[in-house]
């Protein structure tokens, strides 16, 4: 194809998206669109899968059967989210094997928030409330993104997220209405998860490289800073209900903007974690790789069993 023809196709393509038409996997698309989508959807899938680890840590130590059932169901949902997203990503012509390879080798990124440790039971509350809360803010606009398989996966994901946030908030509420030790535990969890949750919404607009293109393709509808402000404005009143203090001395309601002003975010910490130097980066990836490697014999046995069954079917047919 000549450059002229490609340019023409690209214009038609961009116009389709501008008209709110969906792009499906077999449609012609610019190489950059394909690559950007593989990167974003796979990062998203990896985040769901790695995100199971910090919470999985507490399933066996949940304080009651009710909490255990809820946490187990939530972690199972996150596995489901990862699977919906990997499938959507594979429609773009990359194999599951390659995707795992990229995660395991450290080539692919996942959300930096999952590189923080879960030290107490209150962390299960803080994660549901804050991390799933921030995820919802990120994900809801993606239900209308231009790539059909991604948009459909996001619709399913968003339907399931609200229970995640509620069960987390309920854990916090229970602790905050409990003994002094329990309330202190909740406050400590908020102190540790607040700033990483703000960072989770991505670098400031000034430093965000992909924003303009992503807006055009509806991979993004609001800027990171706008999403962050939305998250803060929605979360501060919830902290008030819990009777907890947001760990930011500069946090103040601004009557003029109708929003909360907040203190400086430690972006050095964010980039350190992204680059692999967070408290748990190594632990997360090695847990993931170990799970994959130790499961190899099961996957092989299942394939051997399937082959045997197939053989038997052929024999009976003869």
């Amino acid at each position: 194809m000549s450059n002229e023809q490609i340019k023409n196709l690209e214009e038609i393509f961009e116009a389709r998206i501008a008209r709110d038409e969906k792009i499906e996997a077999k449609d012609w698309m610019p190489e950059k669109y394909r690559k950007t989508h593989i990167r974003q959807i796979s990062q998203h899938a990896h985040s769901e899968i790695v995100g199971m680890l910090p919470e999985g840590n507490w399933i066996s130590r949940a304080p009651s059967l009710r909490r255990k059932a809820a946490l187990l169901a939530k972690v199972q949902d996150e596995a489901g989210h990862g699977l919906y997203l990997y499938s959507a990503c594979e429609t773009l012509g990359i194999s599951r094997e390659e995707l795992y390879q990229q995660l395991h080798s450290g080539k692919a990124k996942y959300s930096s928030i999952f590189n923080y440790p879960t030290l107490t039971w209150a962390d299960m509350g803080a994660i549901g409330w804050l991390v799933d809360g921030a995820a919802i803010i990120n994900q809801v606009p993606l239900c209308n993104t231009s790539f059909g398989p991604y948009a459909r996966a996001m619709v399913r994901v968003c339907k399931e997220e609200s229970f995640h946030q509620r069960q987390g908030f309920e854990i916090m509420l229970k602790l905050c209405n409990g003994s002094k030790e329990q309330k202190d535990m909740a406050q400590d969890a908020l102190n540790r998860w607040w700033w990483p949750s703000l960072m989770m919404l991505g670098p400031t607009d000034a430093e965000s490289v992909h924003t303009e293109q992503s807006m055009k393709w509806k991979l993004k509808r609001k800027s990171n800073d706008d999403l962050r402000q939305q998250f803060i404005d929605q979360t501060v009143p919830q902290a008030d209900i819990l009777g907890l203090t947001i760990p930011d001395p500069d946090l103040k309601f601004n009557k003029q903007t109708g929003s909360y002003d907040f203190g400086a975010i430690n972006w050095d910490e964010f980039w350190q974690v992204v680059k692999g130097h967070g408290p748990c980066n190594k632990q997360r990836i090695s847990a993931r790789v170990a799970a994959w490697d130790n499961g190899a014999w099961v996957r092989d046995a299942a394939m051997a069993h399937a082959a045997k069954k197939e053989e038997l079917k052929v024999k009976i047919a003869i």
């Binding site: 949902d77 489901g80 699977l83 299942a302 069993h305 399937a306």
Partner: peptide, 23 residues
């Protein structure tokens, strides 16, 4: 509803139940 990986049709059915019909 979507797709998934499985060794054979029986496993595909079981996995589909877990992945796509949890609610």
């Amino acid at each position: 509803f979507g797709s998934l990986h499985a060794a054979d049709e029986d496993m595909a059915l079981e996995n589909a139940r877990d992945v796509y019909t949890r609610r």
